[in-house]
Simulated scan of single mutants.
Amino acid sequence: MTNVLILGGTGWLSGRVARAWVDAGARVTCLARGGRPAPEGAELVIADRSNPGAYDAVARREWDEVVEISSAPEHVSSAVAALAAVSHHLTYVSSLSVYAANDVVGADEAADVSAPLRPGEEYDYSRAKAAAEASVRDVFGDRAAIVRPGLIVGPDDPTDRFGYWVARVALAGVEPVLTPTLAGRMSQVIDVDDLAAFLVACGAARLPIVANAVGDPMPFRTLVDTAREVASHRGDLVEADDEWLVAHDVQFWMGPRSLPLWLPSDMPGFATRSNTAYRAAGGPLRDLGDTLRRTFADETARGLDRERRSGLTRAEEEELISARRRAE
């Protein structure tokens, strides 16, 4: 039986990876701080990775595969040091954010990454992932897969970004919905279950790979229009340009009072990364409509008008739409 160690295994993505490995017939152990259960069929080892001896309980066992997801460089470096001698392969979940720039359309894995974060420096996510990748390469070498997901989407997403659009058009019904200017904007996503399946495949085959795990680039309008179709939205789309939105305190990308997935126009490479290596390695890419339908079911179950971590409230949106129409 394949022995798999998930460093984490109780969160959104790592929990799905753990369940996928269990479903594949592996013996799965999750090392986490506790507070949330491991998936059914997986063992939970409770440990705080910031403490000395955090890996003692798992460093005495042999692992066919280790999955690491942390963006804390000190956690990754200590994990690879503790586990290298007892592990055949490690899959590290990095991020497209590791790249130093987002100004080249279609850039692949050869693009420059950020300078690794050094101990004592102010935390920066891009540089933290770069430092973690460096630790993995230095210790595991060709016994590691480094997977760089883009925007991870699907049911149970704790960030509330992708699900905002299908939830919002459903809530609006026949009423208008506010969007950024859609012409020329792109989007690029990866379904959480496609990503989990790929991470399992990397470990099962012990792939020595670096791959951008992301779907095909698509117009942002395609995402919005597909969400409208899934949710049967019949209202208008009210577009607003970047300058107007910024002047009205609407935030980019995520968080309160934002239009999720909206990005400044000077980042043309962000949603247009090459996924050729991912596809060549057999990475699955399901239909956008399928992801949106599953997300819509989840958003409906959680409440379309619930308080969200990302997006405008419906009241904020209606006020902005009125202001926009007065300005036209």
Rank of each mutant, 00 (worst) to 15 (best):
D305E: 12
G41K: 01
L90I: 10
H233L: 01
Y125V: 05
N3A: 13
A115Q: 10
R302F: 07
E328A: 15
W21D: 08
D160I: 04
V224G: 02
D23G: 09
G282A: 07
T313M: 15
G41D: 00
G141A: 02
D225L: 06
A271C: 14
R325I: 09
A271E: 14
I152S: 10
I69L: 15
D298K: 09
A183Y: 00
W63N: 03
L7F: 05
S71A: 07
A42Y: 11
T300H: 11
V80D: 04
G235Y: 02
G303N: 00
A247C: 13
A231G: 01
S71R: 03
L245T: 04
A170K: 06
P155Y: 03
V177I: 03
G150K: 13
T226R: 00
T276A: 15
D156A: 08
D225V: 07
D236F: 07
G120C: 15
P284M: 07
A145T: 05
E175M: 11
S71Y: 01
V86A: 14
G203Q: 11
P37M: 09
P149R: 13
A81Y: 12
T300P: 02
G269A: 05
P219N: 06
P155Q: 08
A205D: 11
A111I: 10
A277M: 11
Q251I: 06
V192T: 00
R325V: 13
G215M: 02
I69N: 15
N3V: 07
A130K: 01
R161S: 05
V230S: 03
P208R: 09
A196M: 06
D23F: 11
W165I: 11
D160E: 05
A197E: 12
I146W: 05
V4L: 03
Y278K: 08
P155C: 03
V80W: 01
E74P: 06
E175K: 10
R302T: 04
I6W: 13
T272N: 00
F140N: 10
A79Q: 10
A196H: 02
S87M: 14
G15V: 07
A172P: 13
A57T: 14
V58Y: 01
H75T: 05
R306P: 09
F252M: 02
L31F: 13
L13Q: 05
T272H: 00
G11F: 04
D266A: 10
A38H: 09
